[in-house]
Design a protein around this nucleic acid. Structure first.
Length: 109
DNA sequence: TGGTTGACTAAGT
DNA sequence: CACTTAGCCAACC
């Protein structure tokens, strides 16, 4: 692998794929793991192209556990359904018990 | 080359 | 407690 030739987006996709089943993380956490703690927005922007990738974008939410990116999924509640299918409690687009399932790459890896 | 965009975040009102 | 403002930075046009 040659990350130096890969765009920032590609790095984001790689980290997103590492998110364990039934866990979620935030854009900022991924950015921090990539060494760009202040590039949380770039991570979100990157996920725009995640549709064609095998990236579990539904496991990436904002810092409050809110499904801010659900509008980028097909249905209106697809993102929530995917999460609930993994055992994640989601109510009103917000993840419940977030601290229990929160996954931080810089700590877990 | 330069300006616009955005699935963010923290701080302020 | 809910909304607004401002800083942030890589990709895109």
């Amino acid at each position: 692998m040659k990350p130096e030739t890969e765009s920032f987006f590609e790095r984001v996709y790689e980290v997103a794929r590492l998110i364990p089943y039934g866990r979620v993380t935030s854009y900022g956490a991924i950015a921090k793991y990539l060494g760009a703690a202040r590039s949380a927005r770039i991570v979100g922007y990157a996920m725009n192209g995640s549709s064609d990738k095998d990236v579990p974008a539904h496991r990436v939410v904002n810092r409050k556990g809110l499904l801010t990116g659900k509008h980028h999924f097909e249905g209106t509640n697809l993102m929530q359904q995917l999460l609930e299918n993994e055992g994640v409690e989601v109510v009103d687009n917000q993840i419940q018990n977030l601290e229990s399932i929160y996954w931080e790459p810089s700590k877990e890896l």
